[in-house]
Design a protein around this nucleic acid. Sequence first.
DNA 1: TTAAAGCCGAGTGATTTAATAGGAATTAAA
DNA 2: TTTAATTCCTATTAAATCACTCGGCTTTAA
Lengths: 157, 157
Amino acid sequence: MKLSTKGRYGLRAVLDLAVHDTDEAVALSQIAERQGISMNYLEQLIPKLRKAGIVKGIRGAQGGYILAKPADKISTGDILRALEGDLNPVDCAEITNGESTCSNSDTCVTKYVWKRISDSINDAVDGIMLSELVEESKRVQTGDPTDNNKTKQSCGK
Amino acid sequence: MKLSTKGRYGLRAVLDLAVHDTDEAVALSQIAERQGISMNYLEQLIPKLRKAGIVKGIRGAQGGYILAKPADKISTGDILRALEGDLNPVDCAEITNGESTCSNSDTCVTKYVWKRISDSINDAVDGIMLSELVEESKRVQTGDPTDNNKTKQSCGK
DNA sequence: TTAAAGCCGAGTGATTTAATAGGAATTAAA
DNA sequence: TTTAATTCCTATTAAATCACTCGGCTTTAA
């Protein structure tokens, strides 16, 4: 029941991009270096983020990546689902799409549990927008004394 | 971000035990047969459940397993954590035990996300007692028409 | 023209998963 | 007192997944 490095590295990378996304595109090599993540590996995560409409690539020299939409329109749920696939604890059709294709569906009781877990995870991550993490990140890095959370940027190795 | 068969099979097995736990011990072979799970594999999950104080083994002929305490004192969280280990999405010391052993702890922002996920999962499963599943299971199997949930017992393969 | 960057797919070693198997210890019942 | 049922324990293994690495192609600003 652990997130893979796809989700952990990927969220850090998107946050790094969001923090440094001003007017110019951000090269993946910069993100990789700042975050201490292999660039080759990060590169593999990009297609997932691009297809999900989270980042856009700018090709050619001086290219890089930018957010495909404003950070307050991207939730951590969007990012994590793009990277990890659905965030359901089991592959159960009734939880994912409401269809009852499981042969045991009538007498299945544990699905009651899986559904509750699934909803709670998705509600949690959908409630955190990327913009909130960006703000928190800036607060931490500037050493603003109003910050009570003392959070950082690469936890969860 | 999926539960393994340890958690899925294990919860089904404990629920099966709870439903059939009357006065006599329930043999693992019976649980395995009813649930369609390899008995050899189920056997491997038992030590985890025993150490967590969830089931008790009765050795010898006519032996089997019984619940170590009443079903309304066992949460699905207890069962799943016994089988899967902690239900945190990342291995982060500050989430697990409150200690700040991570070198990036000061500037880590993503841990804010991991913490929210972790809390929501654990709150969800701690809020469902085994006794509730037993009741739901009996309602489903007896075909009680007051049942609106239409749940069953082995979903989440 | 060239170098910096994104884009794409194949390959790989290590780890984890999901089992299978065999045998020892215990105990109710014949 | 034997026997059979059952828990208990450990080792092995095939397959899958993970976490990368690598090489080459395409695009484009300078």
